[in-house]
Amino acid sequence: MTSLFRSSLQGVAAPPTALEAGDGYQTVRTPDPKAKPTRLSAHDVCVFYGDKQALENVSIDIPERSVSALIGPSGCGKSTFLRCLNRMNDTIEGARVTGEITLDGENLYSPQVDVVELRARIGMVFQKPNPFPKSIFENVAYGPKIHGLARSKSELEEIVVTSLKRAGLFEEVKDRLHAPGTGLSGGQQQRLCIARAIAVGPEVILMDEPCSALDPIATSIIEELIDELRENYTIIIVTHSMQQAARVSQKTAFFHLGKLIEEGPTERIFTNPRDKKTQDYITGRIG
């Protein structure tokens, strides 16, 4: 997999040694001594939609095998930032990304990177459950098939079953693997989408408000699942719910009006935020 990025550093400026935000503002950073080694790292990322700037000089380190939460009011740029991480912004006409995002030190935006294989390494789960109008089995098998991960039918079945088990859905659907995925409940559909993302064997999973369309019970099941998944995956989750961020994440980043205002250990952000804006948001004064 790393061969992907073999030549990705050619022609790209060396990453800055210190995480300093660019002109205009300074992100408040609280280092976490217990944090795991950095896996994914953004430097001075700006995003423009046409002439409109949606994200200003965001720099952040994401530690591996843990959950990092992006919080902030609507339109603050947290989803935009998430979509930068697997280059989903490429699919939006007129979107332009500057700056640098590295996975294991290699730039995702280098011209040598193949977006298709990048997205196999960095999976994504969307806001609204979006199973394909195919059977449960076919939904999970979709990724492995297009990437040629299974050499035989039994191998494919094994991948599907393992993924469904990891997503905590297998017991509920094992008798109806060939029923349509769209027939499941909202929470089950979202777990199906997580299984579908896992099946490709990603290293990082991005989740864009994965529970915003779900009821409280389905939400708590997904949250437990996220907690289990961090054993094996680096997870970045965008959420509107501060409780959710506090429950599932180890690191939290607060975005406001396209700027990364504050980042640090989740416990610290929620109990003792250093920036006034963060405090206002957490106490419900801006939102």
Binding site: M88, F126, V200
Partner: peptide
């Protein structure tokens, strides 16, 4: 969402 879902899987 369907298109994004598929692209997001690396299709």
């Amino acid at each position: 969402a369907l298109r994004d879902g598929s692209l997001g899987l690396g299709a």
